[in-house]
Amino acid sequence: MEEKFNKKIEEALKSFDGIEKASPRPFFFTRLEARMQNQKSTWEEISSFVAKPMVSFACICLIVIINAAVIFSSSTSTNSTTNSISQQNNELATADEYNLVSSNFYEFVNTKP
């Protein structure tokens, strides 16, 4: 029994003797090239997306809108500061007119003429 198994095992181990090398199916390079072209890198995908005319036009529009918004908001803030400054000046002028505000140290000290 043991001998029978040993014989079979030996036969199986010898079955690789004289094995020939296998080759891939024809047009391997063509299939490989097609696969490589399909597998674009992430950066290539991003750049090709950005290069689309619609995407670039939308980007330019967005930049223009952001710029316009910034300019508009800064001009309105300048106006409001100018308004507050002029209001302060008016208050000071009224105070001066009615001598409400002491402007310097001598007015406190030299009260007598």
Partner: peptide
């Protein structure tokens, strides 16, 4: 079945 193996093996 490896294509390079002889028929009898």
């Amino acid at each position: 079945f490896h294509p390079g193996v002889k028929m009898e093996n």
